[in-house]
Amino acid sequence: KPCPVNFEFMNYTIITSRCKGPRYPADLCCQAFKDFACPYAEDLNDLENECSSTMFSYINLYGSYPPGLFASLCRDDKVGLICPAS
């Protein structure tokens, strides 16, 4: 099942300008990640498509982040990372 969102040419500076190594502070990185990803939450949470894998490939590519950074850094609630009310 293809991803309906095109993650290839998106502006990742919302993440890359705020989440920086070598420390990758969790508060900044996770908030930046949510600011980027929350608009696409429904498509990302659909594990029948490739959206999530594709998005992380580009995030890691544009930000040169270590694999698994956001998965190991970010925890909110038992269901996942809570998105701000729109």
Binding site: K34, A37, C38, A41, E42, L44, N45, L47, S52, S53, F56, S57, N60, P67, G68, L69, F70, A71, C74, D76, D77, V79, G80, L81, I82, C83, P84, A85, S86
Partner: peptide, 20 residues
């Protein structure tokens, strides 16, 4: 109400290298 979230299932894709 706001019940939007990024699931951990989705987040776990961050661990999978794209070549796999």
């Amino acid at each position: 109400t706001n019940n939007r979230y990024i699931s951990y299932g989705s987040l776990s894709k961050n661990n999978v290298p794209c070549s796999r």
